[in-house]
């Protein structure tokens, strides 16, 4: 009997132990092996195949046919980058020691609607306060202005306190994030906390639960809370300025702010980038980044294609006007603020 127990237990042990030790995927470090590793990583993790109606298998076959064993690394990189461009996603990059690929058409096909020099020279008059990644100034006694160029720049809570305290006697705050290409999501929470007085649903996030194209978790509600009671808050009207180059975290910020009481989004549709990117790598050491976790607005709509300004608030600033010192989006915001609050016009020059 003892012999029988041992003969049963040992195979069970070995089988179960082996089941925990799954084989790792193996790819040859040659042109085909690297291409296949890239295709597979995206196939397993990319999150917008269905939303963008992309047949990734067909795309893979098309570009694999362009691979030859003899082609050099630069040629291989170019084919791989072209394949990734089919995803039409600014969050997708292929990085090698000699190049990093970007899909740029999400912003190159649209007007820029912004010129930093015009803003600094004609509106801020080369005179502004600057702290922790933001610059700020009172455009008039009644209109405060903050420009935040990148969510990659950390925001100082104390700096925000000073900025908002300086504008505490203003009636409207213009929060300009044009050309903000994104950065840290945690900065959204820091900022939004200054504009709310109770918990809000900012949106939803979900993630892949497996390699299937439709293997997604249930959306998880993103809740933002007001900043601590001892922090300076702004609960008066806010005008958020956007252009097509607002991407990723900046896009998420606009999605969160839009629809809050007293918040108006003015400018152009944002660039999207509503998928939290993950990274993987190829046997030859190249790194690939791709959208992996879709983010939705508070109504459950995808934010990947960008966020529209509020109705009647879509404005474009032409290159010609910007070149002579006129920022149509900022002008619209100032006029909108004055209409809203019946304030006198600020002195622009």
């Amino acid at each position: 009997m003892r012999f029988k127990i041992y003969t049963l237990v040992l195979p069970v042990f070995l089988l179960t132990a082996l089941s925990a030790c799954h084989d790792a995927p193996e790819y040859n470090n040659d042109n085909f092996g690297n291409f296949d590793a890239l295709w597979q990583a995206v196939d397993d993790h990319y999150c917008f195949f269905d939303e963008k109606n992309i047949d990734w298998k067909e795309i893979g076959e098309k570009y694999r046919g362009l691979i030859t064993p003899e082609m050099n690394s630069i040629a291989l990189f170019d084919v791989c980058a072209e394949m990734l461009d089919e995803l039409r996603d600014g969050h997708v990059n292929l990085s090698a020691s000699f190049n990093t690929s970007y899909y740029r058409r999400w912003w190159t096909d649209y007007p820029q609607d912004f010129n930093l020099r015009t803003l600094q020279e004609y509106y801020l008059k080369f005179d502004w306060y600057s702290t922790g990644g933001i610059i700020y100034k009172k455009l008039s006694p009644s209109i405060g202005y903050i420009y935040y160029p990148s969510f990659s720049s950390g925001i100082s809570q104390t700096g925000l306190d000073y900025a908002l305290a300086l504008m505490s006697d203003c009636d409207v705050l213009i929060f300009d994030i044009r050309d903000n290409g994104g950065g840290l999501l945690s900065n959204i929470k820091t900022l939004v906390g200054r504009f709310i007085s109770r918990d809000i649903t900012a949106g939803f996030v979900c993630h892949k639960t497996g390699p299937g194209h439709n293997d997604f978790s249930d959306p998880y509600r993103i809740v933002y809370s007001p900043a601590d009671a001892d922090r300076v808050k702004w609960l008066k009207p806010v005008i958020v300025l956007t252009n097509r180059s607002c991407f990723s975290s900046a896009n998420d910020f606009v999605a969160t702010m839009k629809g809050l009481d007293g918040v108006t989004v003015v400018g152009a549709r944002t660039g999207g980038g509503g998928g939290l990117p993950f990274s993987s790598e190829l046997p030859n050491g190249w790194s690939v980044r791709f959208s992996a976790c879709p983010i939705f607005d508070r109504k459950g709509n995808s934010t990947e294609a960008g966020i529209d300004p509020d109705p009647g608030c879509e404005v474009h600033a032409s290159e010609g006007e910007l070149a002579v010192g006129k920022d149509a989006i900022l002008d619209f915001a100032i006029e909108f603020a004055m209409k809203t609050t019946l304030l006198p016009l600020p002195s622009r020059r």
């Binding site: 179960t16 809740v223 939290l276």
Partner: peptide, 28 residues
């Protein structure tokens, strides 16, 4: 974490499904 779950989602408070019972078949 789940297959493609970012730690940011865990940081936001989604703690479901993070603990798993382990035995030789899945945790050897």
């Amino acid at each position: 974490p789940d297959y493609g779950e970012p730690y940011y989602e865990i940081y936001l408070g989604n703690h479901s499904g993070l603990a798993h019972c382990g035995w030789w078949g899945n945790h050897f």
